[in-house]
Design a protein around this nucleic acid. Structure first.
Lengths: 344, 344
DNA sequence: GGGCAATGTGGTAACGTTACCATAGAGACT
DNA sequence: AGTCTCTATGGTAACGTTACCACATTGCCC
């Protein structure tokens, strides 16, 4: 029978219940004193009119929207999808709504979204996998409560992160331990802090082990965190005469791309070429051979990030940044399961 | 130097620029007449104060928030992640922000989110992969502009969909054509419209071909659209004495689960068992053997869905529901690539 | 030189809600 | 009987923006 979304306001409810708007507001917010009769009549009127209080008006006067912004590079990347789910689940449980923003790894989109979020939309922001520098982020958030995911925070900012350097070292040492002597690291984009740390870990592991294993060589190639990128790099790398016997890719997507390239070139994984990825996305388990990787618990990291943001929102201006660290863990699977293991 | 997010309002800008708030508003909205001098001074003041107009206030008075809600079952499902990206990209290009809601396939969460979205938050909603009935959706959206994805809309609602029945038929016929005679369909959840249609297509293909191929058998098992579900069903199915020689899974995740189960049981795919999935998510290409599947262009469907919503938002009350149909397409890959193909 | 359109500007009432102050009756304690 | 606290309720000014009306000023035409 209704023809349009004619808005039901608190006024309509008040009129129908025969009370003032103040009383209705009190019923909605369970605050102040409300008599039993009034309580019932208001509740009934709200139901009959199918009333929903306007968040807009509410936010305007209270200064809080119960909304947080989530800025990630790309939901289509399974790791970030997990993070997003973790954040959203934790948020909804506390009555917060999440606005999802995909920066597509682009800084200008990041800045644009932060502007939108800042315009009194969001009470706080969680930024995952950003490439921007901390000053740039500060500038763009302009005092908005903030939690960083996937990078080490400073004294100013809370953050949830992993010791990516250690992860990189774990992955590389594993390759060395199973006998690889010519190892290539396909890194992530230059300006990604987590990619940078993984690369550091790789380099450390190589130089630490060089004494023990003569002829050990480490090589570095710049990747882009994408499947196709891994595939292309894999093809050119594996077709060359001087091809590596081990590859550590900075994320699983690229690792799977390399896996495909190897199959294409007819190279046996893991016997001719061992591969380690990073993230432990679902895909890594389903690939063939299944992918050895460093686990990064996206969902848990997401939940944790929201918790830190909530702490910050609750504590006003005398708030202290917190850090939550997750441990990298090596997941052994088919892509490095060689029959004859070389001497350690 | 700033200690908190002290809000910069249009009033501050007006004061600094030495003009009225009205003039500032006009500059912001590029509306009405504004002199050159005023224009410049206001622009300068806005920059200096790092001013962002409050969307809350704006929305309150204009009745529009430039925000849309997106309700999907789960972003961690790659197909829906693609849809989400398509919608978000299309939306941001038109100045709209997207609120992401994961119903987790649960009706009560769906209803809860629609309530939130309705409270003057969102100008419209896109619902993908809902299991709720159309009446339930009508009830929960209460007049909010709406586009359905992945189900055939009615005269009331715009929708973006695929002929899933045809897709189901395509998949099943393909299995029959390569020689399968005992085919199992792992369907989706009972109440999912798209799953239902795929199942119909399966049944039609089986009964149509029964005349031509004697001994052709079709069997039906209820699945849940999840990887683990496919894996379990696969295990119990493949261990039985009367195991099928072809499986059509209602989505790729389950198909990959079955693939893993087959490897686990030592059954050769595709020679002993052929498998077809549905969706053509990235995973299906990376699996081993790669997965034959029915392509469903999630990103394009997302973009299209936003376009339909936009049409609806623009056209006020004299609006007519539109339907946008996508064609299912069979993608041939390893999981059905038998060496000796049966007759026909 | 009176009228009239075009241009530029300001004042202020909305929008739907909450915060705060005011009021008022009912008991209870001095 | 006066005062004080508790309970219950209403009135109304914010919140930051836009929509709308009112008012100047300018230039131009008859």
């Amino acid at each position: 029978m209704e023809s349009g979304p004619e808005l039901v306001t608190i006024k309509d409810v008040a009129q129908r219940a025969g009370v003032s708007v103040t009383t209705v507001s009190r019923v909605i917010n369970h605050s102040g004193y409300v008599g039993e009769t009034a309580q019932e009549r208001v509740t009934k009127a709200m139901e009959e009119l199918n009333f929903q209080p306007s968040r807009l008006a509410r936010g305007l006067v209270s200064g809080k929207t119960s909304t947080i912004g989530l800025l990630i590079p790309d939901v289509a990347n399974p790791f970030f999808a997990d993070v997003a789910r973790g954040i959203e689940d934790a948020a909804i449980a506390k009555g917060y709504t999440t606005i999802l923003c995909n920066s597509d790894w682009k800084r200008e989109r990041e800045v644009m979204y932060l502007g939108i979020l800042r315009s009194r939309w969001a009470d706080g922001v969680i930024i995952a996998g950003s490439r921007s520098g901390e000053e740039a982020i500060d500038q763009a958030t302009a005092g908005l409560p903030l939690v960083l995911v996937d990078r080490r925070g400073s004294a100013q900012h809370s953050s949830v992160w992993m010791d990516n350097e250690r992860g990189g070292r774990l992955a590389t040492s594993h390759l060395i331990n199973i006998g690889c002597r010519h190892i290539v690291h396909i890194s992530g984009p230059e300006d990604s802090p987590s990619a940078y740390s993984r690369r550091l870990g790789f380099e450390e592991a190589i130089s630490e082990n060089r004494a023990r294993h003569e002829g050990l060589r480490g090589e570095l190639i710049q990747g882009n965190f994408r499947y196709e990128g891994g595939h292309e790099i894999g093809l050119s790398l594996l077709r060359s005469k001087d091809r590596p016997d081990g590859i550590f890719a900075a994320n699983d997507l690229m690792a799977v791309g390399i896996l495909q390239a190897a199959r294409f070139c007819g190279i046996e994984v893991p016997d001719e070429l061992a591969i380690v990825g990073y993230d432990n996305i679902a895909l890594s388990e389903y690939a063939f051979p299944s992918l050895t990787t460093i686990a990064q618990p996206g969902y848990a990291m997401g939940r944790s990030a929201f918790q830190l943001l909530l702490n910050q929102l609750g504590s006003g201006r005398n708030y202290r940044a917190e850090q939550q660290e997750f441990e990298p863990q090596l997941i052994l699977r088919g892509s490095t399961a060689r029959k004859r293991q070389a001497g350690m």
